[in-house]
């Protein structure tokens, strides 16, 4: 059975005076990996918990496939959930945890054991069946939680910041493992994170949330390269948002107006290195830092405005060096300049 779509229609949740979900509508396609990305308090977890059935919205419709599940209790929704802190049963073994949903469905013990073992093999946990949960590392617990969430073949999968407790290397490895498992199962998945890199790495589409609304819903590349709102531009990595009047068009570049977004890594310190005609901005170095693969520069430009620059290391800057107060010109190519639609000037 193919994994169904999830459709939300004007879902609203209010806590006192705080609007946690402001009439959110979104359509998750069958088999899609959709990430809800946003800072804490943006409503992403509330939205996930509403879909799971742990949060009762004030209004709205939640559909899984064709069925309206808005008023269906959690245990009837047939959803696999991976929680932030794993939420494993500490009084059961690894196998006991993964068998739990199967025995609950009154599967014969032998078959339950068989399927639980298969799910554990999928998450690289063969040989860990008899272990105590307390004896597992964070990554192993995460894998048990994952196996437990998919072993009963739920219709959809929800994950609430499942990797936030892991260290960086393991997190990156798990991102690929989770993504692969999700694609193998072709299961419709909604994933919550505040880590934009994680969202970019894993998702088919990203819904950037802010203040209980979805600000932009797009594939990773457009979200990153063509942010639709000031919030998205600010949230996705290091961006510079500035009025067009501040920059000086160069060569064949067309004149600019409105509000511009230029990513920190799209600047260069030589006109040739920018990769085409575009704009130039003059400024003085206010601060700098070496970050390994890049140099990080803060350039003070006209009107007390600061420009963030991320210049690849191992090139000319390493030799020339930087001093505070040094006068520099930053260049960016026209194709790296994105115009924000509407919105007032900062």
């Amino acid at each position: 059975m193919a994994s169904p779509r999830i459709a939300l229609e004007r879902v609203r949740k209010v806590y006192g005076r705080h609007v946690a979900l402001d009439d959110v509508s979104v359509d998750v396609r069958p088999g899609e990996f959709l990430t809800l990305l946003g800072p804490s308090g943006s409503g992403k977890t509330t939205l996930l918990m509403a879909i799971a059935g742990f949060v009762r919205p004030e209004a709205g419709l939640i559909r899984i496939g064709e069925a309206d599940v808005t008023r269906l209790p959690v245990n009837k929704r047939d959803i696999g959930i991976v929680f932030q802190n794993y939420a494993l049963f500490p009084h059961m073994s690894v196998l006991g945890n993964v068998e739990y949903p199967l025995l609950l469905r009154r599967l014969p013990r032998a078959e339950a054991r068989e399927r639980a073992r298969a799910a554990l093999a999928r998450t690289q946990l063969e040989g860990y069946e008899a272990r105590d949960i307390a004896a597992l590392s964070g990554g192993q617990r995460q894998r048990v939680a994952l196996a437990r969430a998919v072993v009963f073949e739920p219709r959809v999968l929800l994950m609430d910041e499942p990797l936030s407790a892991l260290d960086k290397n393991l997190r990156e490895q798990m991102q690929f493992e989770i993504r692969k498992l999700q694609q193998d199962l072709a299961i419709t998945t909604i994933y919550v994170t505040h880590d934009q890199r994680e969202a970019l790495t894993m998702s088919d589409r990203i819904a950037v949330m802010n203040g209980g609304r979805i600000e932009q819903l797009d594939a990773p590349q457009p979200v990153y390269q063509r942010p639709r709102t000031r919030f998205v531009a600010n949230f996705m990595g290091e961006s510079n948002i500035m009025p067009a009047a501040l920059v000086e068009p160069l060569g064949s570049a067309p004149p600019l107006d409105g509000t511009l977004v230029i990513r920190a890594e799209n600047f260069a310190l030589e006109r040739d290195a920018a990769g085409g005609d575009g704009i130039a901005i003059k400024g003085r170095v206010a601060a700098y830092a070496f970050r390994g693969e890049t140099w990080h520069l803060r350039l003070k430009v006209e009107g007390e405005r600061e420009l963030l620059l991320s210049i690849p290391s191992g090139k000319s800057l390493d030799q020339a060096g930087i001093t505070i107060g040094q006068q520099l010109t930053a260049y960016a190519a026209a194709r790296h300049i994105h115009r924000l639609d509407g919105g007032p000037e900062p």
Binding site: A52, V74, N75, K76, Q84, N85, A87, F89, Y100
Partner: peptide, 13 residues
């Protein structure tokens, strides 16, 4: 942990 109880419910308990 409340999530442990939620996890059980999500699995159909």
């Amino acid at each position: 942990d409340g999530n442990v109880i939620r996890a059980a419910a999500s699995m159909g308990a």
